[in-house]
Nucleic acid binder design. Structure first.
Length: 419
RNA sequence: GUGGGUGUAGCUCAACGGUUAGAGCAUCAGGCUGUGGUCCUGGGGGUUGAGGGUUCGAGACCCUUCACUCACCCCA
């Protein structure tokens, strides 16, 4: 029989990695709450159209990376490849724009992209996603980056680069596009196949190309950054000023463009050299037109996503929580009768507890306790029962104490001794 | 979609084309029938990813296929 295993690019997350995931989520939540962001959980599965319309039908994600299928009702549905589209949909569907002047929301969960898996990239991956609707003030652009740096600091991530750029508004992009196309037309024979295709459909993406010839061509090309309209330029300069106020060190990268069509003005990426090719672990930007394009009122917005797997790769986890753990070792059937009362006592005091279900030898139980890294082992056998006591062994220094055998009061007595 | 690497015990890996495929770690047990980590002894655990071929003989060589992995592409 064929062995059952996960689908390609899908994984079981456990052990140290899940601890890191939890840590990342907890630290993120903490700061989101401090900054006034509210959690919202949105569906993993949405109508395909939602993603096609928001992300853009010429993007790689939509063209070849979505888990799309027809459901039993005949609708084309898609597992979300990113969170922003669903967040915008929720913002409109739930009428948040009418309920509050500014909506600051976040969500945490799985995303799906049908790509070839490699280090730090899987078909199911996790993102922490943050969105702010309702203001174009560059102060919030800087505030988001500040919040991210605080989270990274608490997670002990020190080696990273914040790259920022502005991709302008619709208007400056429109006029720049013609300028760019005419420049690349003259360099056509130096561009790779992909870039020739990009030239037709989405010329800005040529800046994304890793091909050395294409990079050469872009060296002397005009940059959108240099032909921003006055409004976008002021927006960017104010953004820079606020970043400086928050004491955030950044790197302006005129080549930085995003792979999704909806971005405008501010875009940013946070990268780490420790991640190899998949070096971006946080990315985001402003998208002032998307809400309107999706059928809502004209609403400026900005958001970002943290790649949890990638962040976990560069996060080192400290020692586990300081709470001691206890193990109950018993010898003989009579001792086992004390198990449940003692268990109840421990749980009601909130003490972490474990034991061997089959009795086995005391030696075996001690080994088990050791393998679980128990801090204390409570030992109960015929001798102790006869004397009305229970022995508590400190596994680190091998000291043993005798406690009176009173199941109800045992946890309290143990607490007094061990804390 | 393209290219490279790798598939042998739960994990990490050995085994020149030649007995019954081994070792370390892990696990279980014993030494020490009431005390963990160290030590010693032993046990269990394998369709060598799958299928075909070459050969007297294949874990090894050839072909096919699958999977994993890294990189490209793209992205978080």
């Amino acid at each position: 029989m064929e062995k059952l295993r996960t689908l390609r690019g899908f994984r079981d997350v456990f052990g140290e990695e899940i601890q890191k995931f939890n840590l990342i989520e907890n630290v993120s939540r903490k700061y989101f709450n401090l900054f006034g962001f509210k959690e919202i959980e949105i569906p993993v599965l949405e109508k395909t159209e939602l993603f096609v319309r928001s992300i853009g039908d010429t993007t790689d994600i939509v063209e070849k990376e979505m888990f799309t299928f027809v459901d039993l009702g005949g609708d084309s549905v898609t597992l979300r490849p990113e969170a922003t589209a669903g967040m915008v949909r929720a913002y409109l569907q739930e009428g948040l724009y009418a309920k509050e002047r500014i909506s600051k929301v976040f969500t945490i969960g799985s995303m799906f992209r049908h790509e070839r898996p490699q280090k730090g990239r899987y078909r199911e991956f996790h993102q922490v996603d943050v969105e702010s609707f309702g203001t174009d003030d560059p102060l919030i652009d800087a505030e988001l980056l500040w919040m991210i740096t605080l989270i990274l600091k608490e997670l002990n991530v020190a080696e990273y680069t914040v790259e920022i750029n502005s991709v302008g508004c619709k208007e400056c992009r429109e006029s720049f596009r013609d300028e760019l196309v005419s420049y690349f037309e003259t360099k056509k024979d130096h561009l790779c196949e992909d870039c020739l295709r990009r030239l037709e459909r989405n010329p800005l993406r040529i800046f994304d190309c890793k091909n050395s010839q294409c990079i050469d061509v872009t060296q002397s090309s005009p940059f959108l950054f240099d032909s921003l309209c006055e409004g976008c330029q002021t927006h960017f300069e104010t953004f820079l000023k606020h970043l400086n106020d928050f004491n955030i060190v950044i790197n302006i990268n005129k080549r930085l463009v995003r792979g999704l069509d909806y971005y405008s003005k501010t875009v940013f990426e946070i990268t780490s050299g420790d991640l190899g090719a998949q070096k971006a672990f946080v990315a985001g930007g402003r998208y002032n037109n998307l809400v309107e394009e999706m059928g809502g009122p004209s609403t400026p917005a900005i958001g970002f996503a943290i790649g949890v797997e990638r962040l976990a790769l560069i996060t080192s986890i400290d020692a586990l929580s300081g709470k001691p753990s206890y193990f109950f070792a018993y010898v003989g059937e009579e001792a086992k009768n004390y198990l449940v009362p003692i268990l109840r006592s421990f749980i009601s005091e909130g003490l972490s507890f474990n034991y061997a279900y089959e009795g086995k030898s005391l030696k075996s139980q001690m080994r088990f306790a050791d393998s679980l890294c128990a801090d204390y082992v409570l030992i109960l056998g015929d001798d102790e029962i006869a004397k009305g006591i229970i022995v508590m062994r400190d596994m680190r220094n091998k000291n043993q104490h005798e406690l009176s055998l009173d199941p109800q009061g045992l946890a309290k007595a143990v607490l007094k001794l061990t804390l």
